[in-house]
């Protein structure tokens, strides 16, 4: 307990140090204006400040939800198919793994070209980022199920279908859920990166424009908002992962 307490003290100390450095730098930077924390934090807690930001938050949230929904549904179905059908898996898993190795942002200019600057390109980009971990972990989870578990089910008279949903899915669940959790986090990244690289609406667009106009207080408020959203989403991911818990 004492150890944990000491860890906590040091962690707060680091946080304090970051804020202190921020405050001191902003006081001493003369060429460009850098908003100090004493100016940013009051804004952060001022609800009126969000009047024009709120619609953008909902756009970003919408993009995250849609891309995640699409990635999960397609990732799971393709993953289950490839995971259970060995020939399909040996054929397509290497192709998927190869595509996954490509730095995702490579696809973005094409998506901008196809889908334009508005939400569609962001959803598509976040979808691509999120689809791969979900499909690959589903394939991995399904194909790694211990054969003896399946044998046991057959010996007790289970059909192929029953075995699939009573044995294979639950056995693969922890790996699948961790893939879904990663996919969810990547949706946030995809949407924000997409918006910052060119868009019309959304938090990322606001961040980019606040920065180019040197509205640093606004930039910091928006950045902190994105961090809060990312942490909240990651927490949801942790909850999703815990759904597979099994009394260990």
């Amino acid at each position: 307990m004492r150890f944990k307490f000491k860890v906590l003290i040091f962690q707060f100390f680091i946080l304090f140090l970051i804020i202190l450095v921020w405050e001191l730098t902003s006081a001493n930077v003369s060429i460009i204006f850098l908003a100090p924390p004493t100016q940013v934090f009051p804004l952060l807690f001022n609800i009126w400040y969000y009047a024009d930001i709120l619609p953008h938050i909902s756009i970003t949230g919408f993009e995250i939800l849609v891309s995640f929904g699409l990635a999960t549904s397609t990732g799971l179905s393709v993953g289950f198919m490839l995971g259970t059908w060995k020939l399909l898996r040996t054929t397509y898993e290497p192709l998927l793994a190869a595509l996954y190795a490509v730095p995702s942002v490579v696809w973005y200019p094409l998506l901008l070209l196809f889908l334009g600057l508005d939400v569609a390109s962001k959803i598509a980009f976040a979808y691509i980022l999120s689809f791969f971990p979900i499909v690959l972990s589903t394939i991995q989870g399904v194909s790694q199920v211990d054969v003896v578990l399946v044998k046991a089910a057959y010996s007790m008279g289970a059909s192929k279908l029953t075995t699939f949903y009573k044995v294979i899915i639950p056995a693969a669940l922890p790996i699948i859920l961790s893939g879904i959790s990663t996919g969810l986090a990547l949706c946030v990244t995809g949407v924000i990166v997409g918006e910052m690289l060119g868009g019309i609406r959304g938090l990322g667009v606001l961040i980019a424009s606040a920065a180019t106009r040197f509205e640093t207080a606004r930039y910091f408020v928006l950045t902190i908002l994105v961090i809060i959203i990312a942490f909240a989403v990651n927490y949801c991911g942790k909850i999703i992962e815990r759904l597979g818990g099994r009394g260990a």
Partner: peptide, 26 residues
């Protein structure tokens, strides 16, 4: 009925629900 060296229990089910599995299938 068959029993394996690796217990082959379903680790997402409790002992009771593991024992029930075969009857459930039946």
């Amino acid at each position: 009925a068959i029993m394996f060296q690796e217990h082959a229990l379903y680790n997402w089910r409790t002992v009771l629900r593991n024992v029930e599995f075969g009857l459930e299938i039946r």
